[in-house]
Amino acid sequence: MPVKSPKVAVLLAAYNGMHWIEEQLASILGQSDVDVTVHISIDSSTDGTATWCAAYAAEHHQVVVLPDAGRFGGASRNFFRLIRDVDFGSFDFIAFADQDDIWHKDKLQRAVDAIQTRQVDAYSSNVTAFWSDGRTHLLDKAQPQVEWDYLFEAAGPGCTYVFSKKLAESLKAVMLENWQHLQEVTLHDWYCYAFARSHGYRWYIDPLPSMDYRQHERNQVGANKGLSPLISRYKTIHDGWWFNQVQLITKLVGQDSEPFVKDWLQLGRRQLMKLSLNAWRCRRRMRDKVFFFCICWTTALIGNKAK
């Protein structure tokens, strides 16, 4: 009797993806030792993505295009729509996908094996960023998880995330309860990681890259490599966006009443100084711990625009 392959629902958010989506879908449908169904949600596009996806789905029974839902304005709301509208009932695992990457053939198989053998609820991995000129760079996000990292960062690129059905259904239920406030979350991968960790679900970050992570001018969030992305990150923090998201996600996942969190959540000068001394508990990578310490002190000294 043949062994039943795990059934995986892949949630793919698309927007003006005609340059890359065919290659990405081929890499997803070519996954080894899993039964894949791809669910595509298309943000209102101008390059024919919707028409092309409909034709592709008509020829590939493993691909489903969700009905048009208008303009989302960003990947986060598009992924939240996918979680809300896709029925997970017949699937064993749920995975996220971007439209422009190339998955390694064993990406999902490795994720499923890790979840099962390590007895965890979620999986993410490192990725290999690549550029059109042939350059590549390993994005290493697999440092050991620390006590509060999930309130301040994601578990790596969301396009590597794979969830157990139990976690996915729990995530969906809480999302529906907080749907309006959830629309203010800018990064879905950060929120999903925070939800899982704050609710006692176990997460494994694989040090081996599972996909090639395409870099181009249309990336909403790309590889943080070099000085320019560091400057851009500082600007988002100085402008208040990052600390606003920290406060929002902390409240959405129900951690705002924790004693450690209550000590700094108002993000006043004294709270930020105190938070800086806990940098080692708040970020995984050493470089990010140092950056976190400096940002807390800088923001405390020059002011914070977060509300």
Rank of each mutant, 00 (worst) to 15 (best):
F88E: 01
E169T: 13
D85A: 09
N304S: 03
R118T: 15
D101S: 10
Q143M: 13
K225M: 09
T46M: 04
T298N: 05
V112P: 10
R283F: 03
L275N: 12
I83G: 08
H60A: 13
G134Y: 00
A279C: 03
V112Q: 05
T51Q: 09
H39G: 08
V34T: 04
Q247L: 13
F130I: 04
Q109T: 13
V65C: 14
W179D: 08
L82W: 08
N219I: 13
A300T: 00
V246K: 04
C53M: 08
Q220A: 05
D263V: 11
H199D: 05
K7C: 05
A13C: 04
H216M: 06
A279G: 03
E258K: 11
Q183W: 06
A50F: 03
F292E: 02
F93P: 10
V185G: 00
N278F: 11
L277D: 14
L11F: 13
W148E: 01
L267R: 08
W52C: 02
L252G: 10
V38I: 12
Y234D: 02
S232A: 08
N16E: 05
L176I: 11
S170E: 14
R285L: 08
V38P: 05
G158Y: 15
H188I: 07
Q31M: 14
W203E: 03
D206W: 04
L230W: 04
E153V: 11
M175R: 15
V120C: 07
Q247A: 13
S132P: 09
L248K: 11
W148K: 07
R233Q: 07
Q180S: 12
A58H: 05
E217Y: 10
R118Q: 13
P6T: 02
N16F: 01
K7T: 03
Q99M: 07
K165G: 14
K166L: 14
A69F: 13
Q119I: 10
Y193L: 09
A97G: 06
K305H: 02
L187A: 11
G268Y: 01
L272F: 03
S124G: 15
P6S: 05
V86A: 01
F260M: 10
Q145N: 05
I83F: 15
